[in-house]
Amino acid sequence: MRLVVCLKQVPDASEVKIDPIKGTMVRAGVPSIANPYDMHALEEALRLKDKYGARVSILTMGPPQATDVIKRAVSLGADDGVLLSDRAFAGSDTLATSYILAQAIRKMGEEEAIDVVFCGKMAIDGDTAQVGPGIGSRLDCAVTTYVVGVRSLDKDKKTVVVERRLERGVEVVEADMPVLLTVNKEANDIRYAALPALIESIKYEVPVWTAEDVQLDLAQCGLKGSPTQVKKIFPPPQKDIETVMVTDTISDPAQIAKLLVDKIEEAGMLA
């Protein structure tokens, strides 16, 4: 069985800010991490490997230093990985990204057929959750999003039964393989690497594929292949509210409570 995990290197989103004067994104000094959702997807793949036996391959698109996340995955038990790296990919939106990744997955599949493609539910930099279903559409395979657990897998029937988290409950779905799954964080707890595996993974030489290696149509990659454009970026607006600081004038909790409950009552919320 062959499993592919799409793993993205992202800036730690909680550290990214807008320069209030220049209006540009401040990324200097912001650490790069493996997208947390993708790490849960990897863990789910590794669990299938532990249970049923499988080859787990990582696919990452990004700059040369993104090999870090592939090595980390190898230290946790992934068998191999590929970095897709080319200047032609820069500025890709979700449509172009899904094209590039789907083509690379096809190429990976030429060497050994793929049964399951795992993606995280979304990446914490873009927060779109669009790339997974986009890859699935392009590969014309079954797609199941928001997976919180794999219940069972039947190698002979080539089906997998998964649980999906929706707003009001859990949907249990049987999907034909090959299937693309996007995984939620609550699916699992990520394992730790054993020290020898960690040391071994540093030596792993990550193969790098360019646009040419994957035989991509450059018109569908990068800025050229991206229908959406960013008009502007700006810091989140502060709500323009006159806050009455109650404690500027009163300090006794009982008096504070009286004033607040007056307001609650005026709003008609005490009926």
């Binding site: 939106d93 979700t94 449509l95 899904s98 873009g126 927060d127 779109t128 959750a129 669009q130 790339v131 997974g132 279903p133 986009g134 699935g136 559409s137 392009r138 797609v143 999003t145 928001y146 988290r165 929706l166 707003e167 991206s226 229908p227 959406t228």
Partner: peptide, 23 residues
């Protein structure tokens, strides 16, 4: 931008070659 809408929008934009903005 519900579970359903975000899943479906990503899957539809691809065959249409449409620009899609999430959430």
């Amino acid at each position: 931008a519900t579970s359903l809408g975000r899943d479906l929008s990503g899957a539809i934009a691809t065959p249409l070659g449409a620009g899609l903005t999430a959430d």
